[in-house]
């Protein structure tokens, strides 16, 4: 198996994604869960960049464009997420995700 730079990048991003996923699933602190989600997003960004850089058409600049959007969305998502966390904290004096079950059907 030949490790091209693309493969290395994909391994890195997969590792990053798994770390993020595990962090998001196992942590009970909502902020840490958010951090995990950010990691997963960044893993996806690395993929975008890698596929663009090593893809058939690196002149077009599409990968950067995707990443810029993804970062913007991630920032917005983080802002909303943090705002929710603060609101839940004000309400319940806790940011444990297990305690926030108000959306139970």
């Amino acid at each position: 198996m030949i490790l091209t730079p693309l493969h290395l990048c994909l391994i890195l991003s997969s590792a990053l994604f798994c770390i993020g996923l595990i962090g998001a699933l196992t942590r009970s602190n909502a902020i840490l869960v958010l951090l995990g989600i950010e990691l997963m997003l960044n893993a996806a960004n690395i993929n975008f960049i890698a596929f663009w850089r090593y893809g058939p058409n690196p002149e077009a600049g599409t990968g950067v464009l995707f990443v810029v959007f993804a970062i913007g969305v991630a920032a917005a998502e983080a802002a909303v997420g943090l705002a929710l966390v603060i609101a839940i904290y004000r309400h319940q004096r806790s940011i444990r995700l297990q305690d926030a079950r108000l959306l139970k059907g």
Binding site: A30, V33, L97, Q98, A100, R101, L102, L103, K104, G105
Partner: peptide, 15 residues
């Protein structure tokens, strides 16, 4: 029945 699946726990959803 369906609404029982809606636990409200974020971890569950993520899982």
């Amino acid at each position: 029945l369906y609404s029982a699946a809606q636990t409200g726990g974020a971890h569950g959803y993520m899982r």
